[in-house]
Every structure is written in C-alpha cells, then in structure tokens.
Amino acid sequence: MSVKALRQAVDGLLPSLAPVRFVAPDGRPVKPPAGYAEPADELLREAYRRMVLGRRFDTQATALTKQGRLAVYPSSRGQEACQIAGVLALREQDWLFPTYRDSVALVSRGIDPIEVLTLLRGGWHCGYDAAATRVAPQCTPLATQTIHATGMAEALRRKGEDSVVMAFIGDGGTSEGDFHEALNYAAVLRAPVVFFIQNNKYAISVPLSRQTAAPSLAYKGIGYGVPSEQVDGNDLVAVLSVLLAAVEHARSGEGPFLVEAHTYRMEAHTNADDPTRYRPQREVEEWGTADPLARLETYLRGRELLGAQDIEEAKEAAEAFAARVRAGMNTDVEADPMELFDHVFAEPTPQLLEQRAQLAAELHPQED
C-alpha cells in the first residue's frame, strides 16, 4: 500500500476533531460537520416524549431505592440523550446489549418497567425475555457484553439477517481487555455491531484523566481498523444523527463502528456511592447547564415543533408511568427457595437432586 493510500485509509477511521454538535447547550442550532443529516422532525418529537418519561422513571427508581424497594439503582440522569438516541437508532429486529446503567434505554425499548427493575430488586434473573425483546440482560461485569454483542452480530450475519447489534459501554469499560478483544474480533469479521461509549467522565470515582492518555476514547477504534466518531452526548439531535449513520454503516455490510458520546452522570454512581468525595460541586453545576432534556426542549420550541400542550402531555404521561411503576414495585415478592435448583442444569446432577430433596424436607417436614 502506498503512503497516500495508507493516509486515506487512516483518515477514514478518524473521528471529528471536535464532538459532533447540532444544538448548543442553550438550545440554539449550530452548523454540524458535513456528512450528518438532521433526524426527521417527528423522530425528534418522539425522542422528547421518551426523554421526559425516561427522566421521570429514573427519578422514581431512585426514590424506590431509598424506600428499600430496590437493592441498588445506577441512575442515568443527565445521560438521557444517549439512552433514548441509542434505542431510536435501532429497528425492531436489531439487538441491544446494555450495561447496568441503561434501564432508561430498556424502558424506551418498550420493556415493562417492573421487568426492567427485577434484577435491581434482587431477582435471580434479568426480569425480561431477552430473545423476545432482542435485549440482552443488563451486564454488571465491565465490558463482557461487548464480546457477547460481537458474537451475536456475527451469528446474525451468518444467518443472513438484516440486523445490527448495538453494545452500550461506559468509559471505564474501555479500559478492560474484553472491550479491545471485541473491537478486534468485530473488525476482522466485519460484524454488524456498533460500540456506543457513554463517556460520563468517571469510572465510579476514577476520573477520565486517570483512565486514558488518548485525546478521545473514539480513537481507540483506529488501531483495530474500526471507523469512529465522537459526539456531544447531551445533544440528542447530534447523538441520534451520528448513531443512525453508524447503524446504517454496520447494516450495509461495512463492518463495526465506534461512537463516543461526551456526557455526564449527574447523580452518584449508585445509591451506595458518595460522589462528593471525588468530584467538585462546581463541575456538577457546570454540566447541569448542559442538561440534555432542557436543551432539546428549547431547540424544539424554537423550531415550533413543540408547544406548551405537548410539554404538558409529555409530563402527564410520565407521571402516569411513574404511578404504574410505584404500584408494581410496592408489592412484596413471594420467594420460593426451591427456585435455587431451577435452570442450573438441563439434566440435574445426582448431587443437585440430593440437595433439592434435603431442602424440601426442611421446608416441608412430615407431620407426626
């Protein structure tokens, strides 16, 4: 390969020098880079409705944790543009591989909120049918879902399905070996998978500066031959535009694509975390001025795509949704200890059968 051809090949992998942006933090439109089209008006209106509902769901889930109805809840407040755009960029036949912080995305995908919260409540399963919803179980171990997503994408390609897989991952997950193995494997096989990094600046308490020396996490795709892009993760218009392009790239047979969204986690890592110990309040307040929901609302109102009635209807729908979540979660689950032995082996081992019998005898002793 000539030097010129090599230069062109490398340039084709590089992300934009600055994150792609359509809307400024104050809601004003700005001129995006060439090559990106603004999503359809109705899609943006739908995104707004889902963001309002998603934020209300997130607030309600946080409250349920404080009430003891959830064992843990990782809030995604401030990251709604990423959560909603990731779902809207996919078709029904596409697969989503989420992390533990992506409950809002799952709700936006149409999964029952009570099923979404089953795992975080302490249930032994993920709560929903992964095959029926085409949403993998929420992944707690960092980055392992990226390998699963790549494998699924390759399987779908071999089956001849016109499907794409999107793997959500946080900035901390990009430091894991599984992430790099998934990128390499996907690139070699040209698997139809989009790796979507929600860079919220902290891996629990570890700031981005202690995680990487790269100018942007988007550059991590270059060494594996994966084209990449970076986008303002609090600008839903930009995130949706970039993800739609990335998904189309993968669906058309061009292989994987990596997108990094620059966003911010407004709440604690989980209810067990104290963020005041590792990040300054001034930083949180600065990111609060770039709120993705307020930004989209201002932008849509400026374009006369959103009126007062639309805003009120979205809020009312969100409140009704939150009430349904409360009603569903404010019931006690009757645990069956015998479920410990279900779904362990297709053919139970003698030891498992013996243990099952012992527990059954203790729970239901024969009366004299």
Rank of each mutant, 00 (worst) to 15 (best):
L43K: 15
L44S: 10
L44T: 05
L44R: 08
E46N: 14
A47R: 03
V52Q: 02
F57D: 03
D58F: 03
Q60W: 00
A63W: 06
A63C: 00
A63D: 07
L64D: 07
T65L: 11
Q67R: 14
G68C: 10
L70R: 04
A71R: 13
P74I: 08
P74M: 10
G78Q: 07
C82P: 00
C82Y: 02
I84L: 13
I84V: 15
A85T: 06
G86M: 07
L88E: 11
L88G: 04
A89F: 06
D94G: 05
L96G: 02
P98M: 09
P98V: 07
D102Y: 03
S103F: 00
S108A: 15
D112P: 01
E115D: 15
E115I: 01
E115P: 00
G123H: 10
G123A: 14
H125Y: 13
H125G: 06
C126K: 10
G127T: 06
Y128P: 00
Y128L: 06
A130M: 14
A131F: 10
A131W: 09
T133W: 11
R134Q: 13
Q138Y: 05
T140Y: 06
P141G: 11
P141K: 11
A143W: 01
A143M: 09
A143T: 08
T144C: 10
T146E: 11
T146L: 13
A149G: 13
M152K: 11
R158Q: 15
E161G: 00
D162H: 13
D162S: 15
V165E: 04
M166I: 09
M166H: 02
A167D: 06
